[in-house]
Amino acid sequence: MTAVAVPIEHVLILAGALFAVGLAGVLVRRNIIFLLMSLEIMMNACGLAFVAAGARWAEADGQIMFMLVLSLAAAEVAVGLGLVLQLARRFDHLDIDAASELSG
């Protein structure tokens, strides 16, 4: 298997663009499921930047950091979707603004 020598700045620009799209999604959407999806997009962009840096210096560390990002994403989704179910049960809709008051 051979790897292509892509200019690393193009990969980093792609990662930045994906991150920006995810950030815009987090800022705009009100539905908590779409918010979690946008967070996934942002974390995936971080992983892409890590793997690109690992490929630049031909080191395994980039892929290891990607794996740690992956486990973080899995943990975040598990708790986040549990909160989605709670929100849907209490308010019958998924508007994140409904959960703006912290009370037991």
Partner: peptide, 8 residues
């Protein structure tokens, strides 16, 4: 800067 092009 170019990426190295060597697989890990």
């Amino acid at each position: 800067a170019m990426s190295s092009g060597t697989p890990v």
